[in-house]
Design a protein around this nucleic acid. Structure first.
Length: 877
RNA sequence: GGGGAUUUAGCUCAGCUGGCUAGAGCGUACGAUUCACAUUCGUAAGGUCACAGGUUCAAGCCCUGUAAUCCCCACCA
């Protein structure tokens, strides 16, 4: 049981984690299906206290980034705190197959090997990615351990686990039966590079420079023409109409007429629609239902044909032969050239407009007409809104609830089809044999391992697509807790969902909708959203900027605890905040401080050899003011931490612990204990602080706990401390003594000359607080002597503390101090003026609460007395 | 166009329902040093709380407006 001179996290962390894991301290004590004596499931809602958090699953084959580090710091401190509180905690780890992300990585890998996805079947690709992920897997799980995440590893859920797929299929089937799933030909955001569609939420809009061209469409049977404005001339082949605003008088005579579509032989009608903005361009707009979202809606309203002219590779189709096969860009050039030759191009204007991009590769997304599976979200959103408005979920920060409701109110149907092999196969099969007319075209079947099935003599082939990752992730609280229809599960709903504010819509919203749909209950009672971790200068971290901070580097350099303490510093819910390495260093220093505090105390325990009592047998009493005071301060600290944890104020909790341990416990209490050495109290208070800091700094607190000669078990499973007993009056007196000591130190510093603390002693007169504690004052103030004053007062009286205490300073030095004394009198005088002014105000006296008025009166008396003392001091000189 | 936020010390941020002299970490300056810790100890300097009004006995905090910065959603033919 020896303590090295400093704490070296690297020497302890992995062993400690292994010991925790091996002893099963992370396993919840209450089973997820509580049973009675006969083994039947029971609803013991009242019986046991449980606390559950599911981890937002990191990418299974990736490394943790700093956001994960923050997530673990937040979630694990909640879990550990509640575990110490004696609650059965379940922190469920997860791993994400990360459908699209992983697919992009894998496709790049294929390309490097000289292959493309088109050489393999969907099933082959799935198997290959599975192996690819399996090979890379495991890193992030080790990293979670390094961060100290106290999760139940046996319950790790992978997003492609059988129970996840089962649950997703069950939900999908239910939705299918409920008529909430439909196959629709709709415009989807399609990435021609990745060959897949995206949900609206995955699209990134960027402002880009573009050109707005004016093109003349000749009106049939008239010499007139109608000029439309477009940024995409190549889509004119897909035009189904020209629209003008019904109130636009310029075009009244043309409504209903046919115009000739340039470069083709087709004719299209002029229609009226509110979509056409008379103030924009010429006020007339070409309508291309198959390649523009607004035009699609106009087309729906007017029953216009959807003519697809761009295919999935971004090439022109269904166009005159000289254009067929061109890329959209080539086609645009040729169209413009040809229009110019025919004198139909009437102008161009540079504009800035926002363009949809693939959030992964940046390719411009093509609105593409495709048959996809959609979820009708109307009911889902309505139910979610109802529960949110009823306040069933508490949000941190609070305003995100409104933001979410606002989003849900405008939610459009959800495209859940992805043309990516890596994911959960959509369990729908299409009829092959067209002759069996009374059979539906699509049937639901769970046998997605088969490409083709037979039912009632009819052959069906599986839809090749996979689910949008968010469709399955939306089930996360349900699948991680093993929620079932049959049994009451004490861990569902979760106590809190902690995740990034950036996925409020993509994930949190969908978990709420899905949770309510599947279980009838909201999936979590509270939501804590964290903001982005920005770099030191407040910039978003990105690979291209090269400002990415790797959490594992910090763990290696400063220790896991230091990282956790540091990243929680100065952070509040929902806010993007800069990351300060300084804060991690401060965390590292705190760990070392605590280590050395323990080293000192263990040293005293060894030296005194008074007892070998273990924690459970400890009986302590306070014997002097400093001891009463520290008990009071520790109690206040515990209370503060409890309050902060209940309100998710992590940074404040850490701050309170930091200052209690450092500024109070070490700087004042332990300094005074060098005289008194109250061993049972030292043990008790140290244990209390170790437990209180444990949620935030699990490793160092455990390393110390294991190193102490008297502590048993793990601090990780210790009991959250009860309040300490103390004498409040005595504690108050210590505070007075602290003021005395501070003034001695401050005055010695302010006096001219160096090494004053060694030169001048202290003298006291007729003052019991000082007289009774002279040795303590001498120790704390580090003065060479302390004696009773003999004869008339001399030297420098310490006026601030209002005690009969004098610094034994020669008159020459005192007179040099005169100036600062005068300044002090003036400063106190200014404060006094302010207080007096307040009391002169009759409204203050009559309207402010009585205790405040009384406080002001007291303060005035005190200041007046102080000025008097200072003036006397001045006279003495 | 709709919505959400931010602005407090040199830097990164606290400041919860308005109430003593606005706090912390880092940084800066000055001083200390065997006796737990230089990953230390002590002391200090540093703030027009973005700006302008208002409410109030009292405003960093509440209200109105202005400016700057950032984010999300929708739209831009």
């Amino acid at each position: 049981m020896t303590f090295a001179k400093s704490y070296e996290p690297g020497e302890f962390e992995s062993d400690i984690y292994a010991a925790w894991e091996a002893s099963g301290v992370f396993t919840p004590s209450v089973p997820r299906v509580p049973t009675d004596n006969d083994g039947n499931g029971v609803d013991d809602r009242q019986g046991n206290l449980t606390y559950s958090i599911v981890m937002p699953p990191p990418n299974a084959n990736g490394n943790l980034h700093i956001g994960h580090g923050l997530t673990v710091a937040l979630e694990d401190s909640l879990i550990r705190y509640h575990r110490l509180k004696g609650i059965s905690t379940w922190y469920i780890p997860g791993a994400d197959h990360a459908g699209f992300e992983t697919w992009v990585v894998y496709e790049r890998f294929l390309e490097k090997q000289g292959h493309t996805r088109f050489e393999f079947s969907r099933d082959e690709l799935y198997a290959r990615v599975w192996d690819f992920v399996a090979e890379q897997r495991g890193n992030m799980e080790l990293q979670l351990r390094a961060l100290g995440a106290s999760c139940a590893w046996d319950d790790l859920t992978f997003t492609l686990d059988e129970n996840v797929v089962d649950r997703v299929y069950t939900t999908f089937e239910k939705m299918w039966k409920d008529g909430m799933i439909y196959r629709g030909e709709k415009l989807v955001n399609f990435c021609p590079k990745h060959q897949t569609a995206f949900a609206d939420i995955e699209v990134e809009h960027k402002d880009e420079k573009g050109t707005l061209w004016d093109i003349a469409y000749p009106v049939k049977g008239s010499k007139k023409e109608i000029i439309v404005s477009t940024t995409r001339p190549e889509t004119l082949f897909g035009d189904a109409a020209v629209a003008v605003n019904p109130n636009d008088e310029r075009y009244t005579d043309l409504i209903g007429k046919m115009v000739k579509l340039p470069l083709t032989e087709r004719e299209i009608p002029v229609i009226t629609d509110e979509h056409a903005d008379p103030a924009y361009g010429t006020g007339a707009v070409k309508i291309t239902p198959a390649h523009d979202f607004d035009d699609f809606e106009v087309g729906e309203r007017h029953n216009l044909p959807r003519l697809q002219v761009i295919n999935e590779e971004g090439k022109m189709v269904n166009v005159p032969s000289e254009y067929a096969g061109l890329t959209t860009e080539e086609c645009r050039k040729k169209v413009l050239k040809d229009l110019k030759e025919q004198d139909l191009l009437r102008g161009e204007k540079k504009i800035v407009h926002s363009v949809a991009h693939c959030y992964k590769c940046g390719t411009t997304l093509e609105p593409m007409l495709k048959e996809q599976w959609f979820v009708d979200v109307e009911k889902l959103a309505a139910v979610a809104i109802k529960h949110l408005e009823a306040g069933e979920i508490k949000f941190y920060p609070e305003n995100k609830c409104k933001v979410l409701i606002n989003y849900l109110k405008g939610l459009k149907d959800w495209n859940i089809s992805r043309q990516i092999p890596w994911g959960i196969a959509i369990p729908m099969f299409r009829k092959v044999d067209k002759t069996a007319t009374d059979e539906p075209d699509w049937i639901f079947d769970r046998r997605t391992n088969l490409r083709e099935i037979e039912k009632g003599g009819v052959r069906y082939v599986r839809d090749e697509d996979t689910f949008d990752t968010w469709f399955s992730s939306a089930h996360w609280p349900i699948v991680c807790t093993d929620w079932t229809e049959e049994n009451y599960n004490p861990y569902y709903p979760l106590n809190v969902m902690e995740t990034g504010a950036d996925i409020l819509f993509a994930w949190v919203a969908r978990m709420i909708m899905m949770g309510l749909y599947v279980t009838g209950e909201v999936p979590f009672k509270e939501v804590y959203l964290h903001g982005l971790v920005l770099d030191a200068h407040g910039q978003k971290m990105s690979k291209s900027k090269g400002n990415v901070i790797n959490p594992m580097d910090l763990v290696t350099r400063f220790g896991s605890d230091a990282f956790r303490l540091g990243i929680l510093r100065g952070r509040s819910a929902g806010m993007n905040q800069a990351f300060a390495e300084d804060a991690v260093i401060a965390g590292r220093n705190l760990c070392n401080k605590l280590w050395n505090i323990s080293r000192l105390i263990q040293g005293i325990v060894d030296e005194k050899k008074t007892d070998d009592l273990h924690s459970s047998e400890l009986e302590y009493t306070t014997l002097n003011m400093g001891e009463d005071w520290i008990c009071r301060e520790i109690n206040e600290c515990l209370e503060q931490v409890e309050q902060d944890m209940a309100n998710y104020r992590f940074a404040e909790a850490v701050e309170t612990l930091y200052s209690t341990i450092w500024d109070k416990y070490a700087d004042w209490f332990l300094e005074s204990q060098k005289m008194f050495k109250n061993v049972p109290l030292l043990k008790k208070t140290l244990e209390t602080l170790l437990i209180a800091l444990h949620p935030f700094a699990p490793f160092v607190t455990e390393a110390i706990w294991q190193n102490l000669s008297w502590a048993d078990g793990f601090v990780a499973t210790a009991k959250w401390p009860e309040k300490l007993e103390f004498d409040p009056i005595s504690a108050e007196n210590f505070e007075k003594l602290m003021v005395v000591v501070s003034e001695v130190r401050g005055t010695l510093q302010a006096l001219p000359g160096t090494n004053n603390a060694k030169k001048y002693g202290l003298m006291y007169d007729n003052d019991s607080l000082v007289k009774d504690n002279q040795m303590l004052i001498k120790t704390l103030a580090k003065v060479p002597t302390i004696n009773a004053l003999e004869g008339a007062p001399r030297g420098l009286r310490l006026a601030l503390a209002n005690h009969e205490l004098y610094l034994d300073v020669p008159e020459k030095v005192v007179s040099e101090y005169k100036e600062s004394l005068t300044e002090k009198i003036l400063a106190v005088g200014r404060e006094l003026d302010g207080l007096n002014a307040r009391m002169m105000n009759p409204n203050y006296v009559s309207k402010a609460p009585e205790h405040l008025v009384k406080e002001t009166e007291d303060a005035i008396r005190e200041k007046e007395a102080l000025i008097e003392r200072l003036k006397q001091q001045l006279k003495l000189i």
